[in-house]
Design a protein around this nucleic acid. Sequence first.
DNA 1: AGCACGTTTGGAAACGTTTCCACAAGGGGG
DNA 2: CCCCCTTGTGGAAACGTTTCCAAACGTGCT
Lengths: 362, 362
Amino acid sequence: MTNPTEPGPTVPTGSPQGIEAQSTNRAPRARPTIKDVAALAGVSLGTASRVLTNHPATSATAREKVRAAALSLGYQVNLRARSLRTSRTNAIGLIVPDIRNPFFAGLAQSIQSEGLDDGITVFIASSQEDPDQQDQHLRTLLKEQVDGLIVVPLGGMTPMLEQLRDQQIPFVTVDRTLDELKAPSVDADPLPGVYAAVEALRNLGHRRIVYVGSLLDSSTGRERLLAFDNAGDALLPGGDARMVIAAPLDDDGWLRELDSFLDDGATAAIFGHSRHALRAFGHLRDAGRVIGDRGVSLVSFDDLDVFSLLTPAITAITQHPEQLASRAMAMLSAMIGGDRPGSVRIETSLIPRESLAAPPAG
Amino acid sequence: MTNPTEPGPTVPTGSPQGIEAQSTNRAPRARPTIKDVAALAGVSLGTASRVLTNHPATSATAREKVRAAALSLGYQVNLRARSLRTSRTNAIGLIVPDIRNPFFAGLAQSIQSEGLDDGITVFIASSQEDPDQQDQHLRTLLKEQVDGLIVVPLGGMTPMLEQLRDQQIPFVTVDRTLDELKAPSVDADPLPGVYAAVEALRNLGHRRIVYVGSLLDSSTGRERLLAFDNAGDALLPGGDARMVIAAPLDDDGWLRELDSFLDDGATAAIFGHSRHALRAFGHLRDAGRVIGDRGVSLVSFDDLDVFSLLTPAITAITQHPEQLASRAMAMLSAMIGGDRPGSVRIETSLIPRESLAAPPAG
DNA sequence: AGCACGTTTGGAAACGTTTCCACAAGGGGG
DNA sequence: CCCCCTTGTGGAAACGTTTCCAAACGTGCT
């Protein structure tokens, strides 16, 4: 009856390759599965699973045995198998235009660590300001079955964005919004920060202020300029009190405009993009102009680390990226839970630093 | 024979819930599976799979029908199911100490887009310089069954790093290396860049140079200082030609040391950390010192965007993050393929800018 | 003593793939 | 004409989970 050439039933075949794997350390010892845990604990597969997922219907002894087995094996659940079964991944995707932009890096950091607290894995993707890369990342994330998406959309609509809109996958936009996709968004209201800046400048004695705008075709670019206009209307009613420069990102021509406005009596500048603020900072100092006290005041959107490292430190209008992050996460969670939350705006605010000071006497 | 109460074979049961899903648009229409594709194409599941994975054993007609069906359904493969079956994910994890550090942001960007080209998904995780977060991210990535890992390790060993070392999962370290984990690494050799900097300074007439070092307990911090010593030995043999400051990241006390060295006749400073270079830039200008031509020359490790925006633009020693990225990817791919590649060093090089100039006359 | 009930358990199905296996169809060479 | 080989196909198993279902096992009540 017992055939000596085939292994008898008394030999547990739980880890058949255990011995040979030991002989050569090239072969990666296969990761233990829940089946191994169950076998070692002497319980069924279902019981092991229930213990490890904290299902209430488990006995104390089963819990103890399974936990011990899992620990001694170094068992780690296979998330891909789990989510195949549960059709939930507890993962979301985040797509930013460029992770090298410090604002987006901060946003990503905040969102990811927010997720870490909530047990949600955040897959960060950076599209390098390229719609094709954005779509490619979107497609992969969908194939990865993420539960939802947080997107900082590039300028225009793309095939994948349309698909997102039409499909029912939960997603929110953050920072920038795109009217065409009817998704809830969380973005920053530039007015409070701009208003505070203009008001502070006026109270310090400034009478003529330049606004350097950029990306004027994006929602944020437009709204920041609009906010400057509104604040100016309310606080500096004089007709020639406000000057506006439209500055591209890759051409320094606008610096000449800025110089001539300053020569004409402007004593302060507000920048819609931190990049321009830094560029002007260097340029103005180089030209021998005083920045800060008794000189030209500078205020910039977005609060970069380097702003407080410079001398004088540059005043910022912050969009509170941590708040954007946490609201976006909350909204996305709500959507994944089945709700349809409304859009949200975060107030910007002013962070006064040395570059915000009195104009030259007289 | 034909029973009218059960659906005849002519009625395709491919998407049974199609109609009811249409009635209420709250219910997210379930994503089509390969089964739906096969049904619509009128072939078996296996055939559909073979077509979609470009298996050679498929007929032209099958390919045509399956492709058409997949297209019309908008079918996208479920990567989690696929990798459960194939035990490959075509995804790797990347862990950086802090994504807000522009150097790491650039590294991450390069690695991710490198992966995009190779069909590899790169999951980026930032540990905020916190070993616990690093380990937490490592654990999740392992549970996600990534094929491999690229790690910029924090200072010391941690439980998960030990597990990585002992387990057979392919991983490489980049930028920083940690002797304890015997993993192949790709990092930058600071000497060529530092040597070029010191040589250029000497040729311009500088005779006394300060080195501002940081993170001296990390491999990079140590090696950069060592490189400065070596370059100085070769190029500036005078005993008092070189001064060294150990600067912490969060305390500005070192600025006083810098001032006093400059007062003592030093005319140039090399910074091991870009943060310190920026801090000094602001401080020195504020103190009324000339930077650049006929003033104090500044050279900093890592090439930040803002360096070229400032005036004068700051000279950098670049570690060529794109090269680090592509070598790391290549090495990891090799490891995943079963090889055991050796470590690699990338030469740093000098990017001269305006802050590298002649010292004051006399 | 019997019965209903609550707790815990094992077994099996299912998630969406890929891939092995066996077989059918067709074609060419003996 | 038969056999063999190639090519393409369908069916089924398997990957590692969770969860449904039914059964086993006490326990407390009548």
